[in-house]
Design a protein around this nucleic acid. Structure first.
Length: 284
DNA sequence: AATAGTCGCAACCGCCAGGGG
DNA sequence: CCCCCTGGCGGTTGCGACTAT
């Protein structure tokens, strides 16, 4: 197939929505007896009117043993931000570094809490650059695109899966912060907020501004990427950050594991190729 | 007390990659 | 090589709980 839902999810009588305790019990009992795998047959064998995909998600994200259901710790929070600054929204990889957490947990926590926190500190949560810089870059890009229809076509060509690149992916509230015309000043290096800052003034007026962090909490400026194209090279110079070496969150020696190095290598290749592509299409 | 607005979590949707026939 | 099936992933949405007016 490859396109569209699995056949078992197309049935009209398949139940959707929240799982009941009874359904959870049935799924739990089935997995306890037979283990996981071949999810397509699980609903039938377990006596559930769900599609296999729904069963797999329920098991993976909620019923699976050793899952943490309490709130995220500051150490976990710090690791998520660090990894996101490095590898982006590869939630499954990030979740693998956090025992007991699922990719859905991490993704939800990012979308509802962490991205907003970064934005409140003047950091664009997508690029980890100052919001003012990002907005400037976007404006410049629009000017460039408007002067060249071929450039617009080229831009579309490098983002074929456009549904993942529009701002619909932004957190509902975060969108308002980032797109606010008054959010023009980076405050990443100066928490707590100075008086007169437009972003913080606006947020403070809405009563949503968090209390100033105590000195021993996260320094958000550490997660500021200075340049989106240079960051990967520069990060090598200070990788791993102190928080990771201290916590030894992944990698036996306290540093990043090899797969992250592999990802970074591939990212560097892609960035290099992409830079050449841009030069060829925009600067000629 | 009623209503509107906001938040956060659970679940769904659509796409993709890998493997088997 | 092609097609199909399955599992995995990231983005998005639905909805209940909570808060503000």
């Amino acid at each position: 197939m490859g396109v569209g839902p699995p056949a078992s999810c197309e049935k009209v009588n398949v139940k959707k929505g929240l799982w009941s305790a009874e359904e959870d019990a049935k799924l739990h009992a089935y997995v306890a007896a037979h283990g996981t795998g071949n999810w397509t047959n699980v609903p039938k064998k377990a006596g559930l009117k769900r599609c296999g995909k729904s069963c797999r998600l329920r098991w993976t994200n909620y019923l699976r043993p050793n899952l943490k259901h309490e709130g995220f710790t500051s150490q976990e929070e710090e690791l998520i931000v660090t990894l996101h600054a490095t590898i982006g929204s590869r939630w499954s990889i990030i979740a693998n570094q956090l025992p007991g957490r699922t990719d859905n947990d991490v993704k939800n926590y990012w979308n509802t809490k962490l991205s907003k926190k970064l934005a409140l500190h003047g950091i664009d949560p997508v690029t980890h650059r100052p919001i003012s810089e990002v907005k400037h870059s976007i404006t410049a890009l629009h000017v460039t695109a408007a002067t060249s229809s071929s450039a617009a076509a080229a831009a579309a060509a490098v983002r074929p899966n456009s549904r993942n690149n529009n701002n619909n992916s932004l957190n509902r509230n975060l969108k308002n912060i980032l797109l606010s015309p008054s959010s023009t000043t980076s405050t990443a290096t100066m928490p707590p907020p100075p008086p007169g800052n437009a972003v913080f003034d606006q947020i403070a007026a809405e009563g949503a501004f968090p209390p100033p962090p105590p000195p021993d909490q996260i320094e958000w400026a550490e997660y500021l990427v200075e340049d989106a194209f240079l960051c990967l090279e520069e990060q090598d110079a200070y990788w791993p950050p102190p928080s990771i070496t201290a916590g030894a969150a992944f990698g036996a020696a306290g540093g990043p594991s090899s797969f992250i190095d592999e990802i970074l290598d591939r990212d560097r290749e892609m960035v290099s190729d992409f830079s050449g592509f841009l030069a060829g299409h925009y600067l000629l």
